[in-house]
Computed example of a mutant assay.
Amino acid sequence: MRLWKKVLSAVTAGALFVGGVGLPGVQNVLESVGTVLSASAKVPLYYDDTYGDLYYSITDNGEIEITGCNEDAVIVEIPSEIDGKPVTRIGECAFSEDCAGLTAIDIPDSVTSIGEGAFENCKKLVKVTIPNSVTSIGPAAFCNCENLTEITIPDSAAYIGEYAFLGTPWFAAKREENPLVIVSGIVIDGTTCTGSVVIPDGVTGIGGFAFADCESITEVTIPDGVTNIRQYAFSGCENLTKITISDSLTSVEIGAFSGCTNLTIYGYTGSYAETYAEENDIPFVSLGNATILDPTLAKGDLDGSDRIDSTDIFYTMYYVANVAVGNPGGLTTEQIAAADVDGSGKVDSTDVFYMMYYVALHGVGKDVSWEEVLAK
């Protein structure tokens, strides 16, 4: 039963009898509400039912989200399904603080997402294996787990939020090993780096707050293959004067370079980096023209179906919408090249328009070419 239902029941019952019992009755009602809140202090704010030591809710699409845990739990095994419904998410703060005695957690391969602060401050947790099914690890997910020395993180984790492992012995050891902490192709920390920093090949993203307030770095080189720089990644890097960005970059989130007052971006003419620099009044130096890929997929045919239809339009719109809010676009390099139907070097609403126009004309029997469409 949801906590708010208990409180609402107590308040409603009291309200019905206030007229008959007077102020002392009101006081009793308030005391009863306090009792409900006190007795439920370790109960999550929302849940639909319980399973062993776990509290859970059912999402709109019929999946299970773990929302809390019995405060006395020590060893917890999360099931892969409950009542035939798959367990796909560990919710925000589900185990944080209240499960202070938790020493071991078994996460099934049905889980795809671990929410913000899910295990924050679980100070007795010593080992965690995150299954290959997980694609998203939220900010501060394991922050301040002061005895967490062993963490297995899959390559499938495309998103790792800021400070996900800060305050753990595992993170401290990683930083000691190399000031540039890279997990699943994502730079999650570089705040102890100094001077000129070269991000190695194989990295695909720069995590949120990864270099925040690092006043010791002066130059950064970002290799080909990096597609996104997340929020506040280099914020407060006052002595950062030069950053070189390849033409693979497709998104930069809010505040990524806030406070970098002496920064100049070096990149390629026609690239996203140039557009970002212009839109944010950051000096830009060209290193030459951006590479225009010769797509292995036909123009506009993102799914390789040998025709251009509503599916291709959907993929393109999904990409544009995600990139606009700083999220990964979800397309491969070849698909991005195919989606850039106007050849501008970036995928945007103009490409969506041309694709819709192309599909509409073919839908009414007009066998027009891309050249004819783009000439309009």
Rank of each mutant, 00 (worst) to 15 (best):
A10P: 04
A13K: 09
L16G: 07
V18F: 15
G22S: 12
P24S: 09
E31K: 13
L45N: 14
L45C: 06
L45E: 13
L45K: 14
I58A: 10
T59D: 14
E63L: 07
D72I: 07
S80Q: 12
I82T: 13
G84I: 13
P86M: 12
E92W: 09
F95I: 07
D98S: 06
D106V: 15
V111W: 06
N121Q: 14
K124L: 15
P139K: 10
N144V: 09
L148V: 11
I151S: 01
S156K: 12
I160A: 05
Y163F: 15
G167D: 09
T168E: 00
A173L: 06
K174M: 01
K174L: 01
P179S: 04
T191D: 01
T191M: 01
C193P: 01
V198F: 03
I199M: 08
D201C: 02
F209D: 01
I217Y: 00
R230G: 07
T241L: 11
S248T: 15
T250A: 03
I254S: 13
G259W: 02
I265R: 06
Y268I: 02
T269C: 05
G270E: 13
Y272Q: 02
E274N: 04
N280E: 04
I282T: 03
V285M: 08
A298E: 08
D309H: 10
T311L: 10
D312E: 05
T316F: 08
V320N: 04
P328Y: 02
G330F: 12
S344T: 11
G345N: 04
S349W: 11
M355T: 12
Y358K: 06
V359M: 08
H362A: 03
V368N: 08
S369E: 10
K376M: 09
